[in-house]
């Protein structure tokens, strides 16, 4: 139950929503699926004076544009994403990443934009503060950090746990952002600041309008993995997304994008590990090395009871397997052709 008073408005258009958000100067929040916002309000980590509901705005169906890229409305429900025939065919990694979010009830409500704009997570933060961890931490505008007491005031080592963001970054996707002055377009990667206190590069009156994913070139292949304890209804220990571009021989890598999610304040790209694959034949040894380098470079934050060492072990093994599966997928497709 949310135990404070707030106002509620329903926007008919995204423009109207942006105008309402702008007027309230930070005291208003947009409500899409509510699966992240409402628990945050219940725990009183956020206490907006106004909720601007987007539930009256019908999302456009996913569409393939003239250049072969795909445009997906930010208000698209995760269940729609995972079940859309078009999305599954054109961007299967996105469908896969939507499928592993929460449970079915969450996916029926949660939206693509909401998933990307979710708050960072920390065990000390994600609960009511009636008698536990009462003094606000840095994230809640206070003067302490419970899990890392020696952290400086500007450092919040919470983790950003979207399953979908790593997939979109691997896919080199962009987001269309609507603000008071109109629309701007940035890489999904640029949406994340890496700062746990303010994880998103959005102003108060900005809303995600759509996600654009470029068309896959021939030789494209992908791999995705979410490490969990029970295999569902949970956030990941680590989320791994891999996009590879292979030469005609099917073994030489011409481009690689690797993204690790859920272990830092935002998704992380191990650029050096990516480069170590480009122009090289992808054999076991090279993939193993890239995975090991990644687990080191990513430097995972211990979170949700998992130690740094264990997260590094997990990333190392599962990233190697994810790369190998991507390669295998390319071979299977080749064989199936």
């Amino acid at each position: 139950m949310i135990l404070f008073d707030f106002d509620y408005e329903r926007a008919d258009t995204l423009e109207q929503a942006v105008a309402l958000l702008a007027r309230l100067q930070g005291d208003a929040r947009a409500l899409a699926g509510g699966t992240d916002l409402l628990p945050g309000m219940r725990m009183e980590n956020i206490r907006p004076g106004l909720l601007v509901s987007l539930s009256g705005i019908e999302p456009e169906a996913p569409q393939v544009l003239a250049d072969g890229s795909i445009r997906i409305d930010a208000l698209t429900r995760l269940a729609t994403l995972e079940n859309s025939e078009l999305v599954r065919r054109v961007v299967p990694m996105l469908a896969q990443s939507a499928h592993v979010v929460g449970g079915n009830q969450i996916r029926q409500m949660g939206t693509l934009g909401g998933n990307l704009c979710q708050e960072v997570r920390c065990l000390h933060l994600d609960q009511k503060h009636d008698y536990q961890f009462v003094a606000p931490c840095y994230k809640r505008g206070g003067t302490c950090c419970y899990p890392f007491p020696r952290n400086a005031p500007e450092v919040c080592w919470s983790v950003y746990m979207s399953d979908i963001a790593p997939a979109l970054i691997a896919l080199n996707a962009q987001v269309e952002i609507l603000g008071e002055t109109g629309t701007r377009r940035i890489d999904v990667e640029a949406l994340f600041t890496g700062n746990g206190l303010k994880p998103l590069a959005l102003s108060q009156a900005e809303l995600l309008r759509a996600v654009l994913i470029p068309a896959a070139a021939p030789g494209f292949t992908w791999g995705f993995h979410k490490s969990t304890v029970r295999g569902g209804l949970e956030f990941g220990m680590a989320v791994l997304a891999v996009a590879l571009q292979l030469a005609e021989d099917g073994r030489t890598c011409t481009d690689a994008r690797i993204v690790v999610g859920a272990v830092r304040e935002g998704p992380v790209r191990p650029v050096a590990a990516e480069r170590s694959l480009i122009g090289k034949t992808l054999d076991e040894e090279r993939m193993e090395q890239a995975a090991a380098d990644t687990s080191r470079v990513v430097n995972p934050l211990p979170h949700h009871g998992f130690s740094k060492r264990h997260l590094m072990d997990n990333i190392r093994v599962h990233l190697r397997r994810t790369l190998a599966r991507a390669l295998q997928r390319a071979r299977d497709q080749e064989a199936g052709r």
Binding site: D126, Q127, R230
Partner: peptide, 13 residues
Amino acid sequence: TLNPNWLDYRMPT
């Protein structure tokens, strides 16, 4: 208590 909820106290599904 660090995980006072069903999400972070993982019971089997």
